[in-house]
Design a protein around this nucleic acid. Structure first.
Lengths: 132, 132
DNA sequence: TAACGTTATGTAATAATATAACATTTATAA
DNA sequence: TTATAAATGTTATATTATTACATAACGTTA
């Protein structure tokens, strides 16, 4: 269960935008979209993004430098994320598969390393793009 | 088994540098290091990096914007990569665990998506940093 | 409520990462 | 040898992200 966080003004504006978009958004596209709301500088966007990522309301899609609203209410606050990315239309969705997350959360090898977090990105073609 | 590729001059210079470094290197750090060899512009570096990634000689660590030599001779040419990253010392190593790669390569869900590639990054503390 | 510490905001400048566009050269193979 | 693809060189520019510093709002607790 996610802890309730009281988002600040900028955090709320930016979260709502990303959430409503339904897909990944890039920082400067966000900036462009919130300028009418008084958010004028990149840093204002990046600060809000940083906080939203920290509390698990959004995730960063590392391979795309983009941010997407968390679609998984039971997600362990960004400690365990998996995404599927269509390399043709760039559609992204969060994978919530308990077997997968259990498998990866429990993964360990003989490196002596203690894993506390992972991010997995799958690439391929989505249903639509496959049939083109 | 990896196909043999004849690296071009720039590709060889840049691969050798990354390989010898033993860890991840960032593009502009690479640029700085190869300037004495006549590679003067970012694009020359990025082009070589692009090709080296394409043929699987190096991998990009997406969360770090860095590039590391492939440490896994049997790796499926960058189609299936997994790394462990120490969040304290930033040491990165490639995970080659056949159970893991088999599990992920065969992963599928009911999204209708055909996955042809994945990248997994684990984060945590390495042995050394844990004991500090 | 006053004082304090923490979190968030505003603003300007700049750093770090990556690509576009175009001209030329080298390697490969038909 | 010719033509085709791959690689190179160069300049400029686009995109992504942070540093530094000043101020304001919020939450706690004395």
């Amino acid at each position: 269960m996610q802890k309730e966080h009281n988002l600040s003004k900028n955090q709320k504006i930016i979260f709502d935008l990303i959430d409503k978009s339904g897909g990944p958004m890039k920082a400067y596209s966000i900036l462009f979209n919130v300028q009418k709301k008084g958010i004028k500088a990149p840093l204002q966007v990046y600060r809000a993004l940083g906080k939203l990522v920290e509390i698990g309301k959004i995730h960063k899609i590392e391979s795309r430098n983009a941010f997407i609203a968390c679609q998984n209410s039971s997600c362990q606050v960004s400690k365990a994320t998996a995404f599927s990315i269509c390399e043709s239309c760039e559609n992204v969705s969060e994978i919530s598969n308990s077997k997968l997350s259990k498998y990866l959360s429990n993964f360990s090898d003989n490196s002596g390393m203690k894993y506390s977090k992972y991010n997995l990105e799958f690439f391929g073609l989505c249903k639509k793009c496959k049939s083109k």
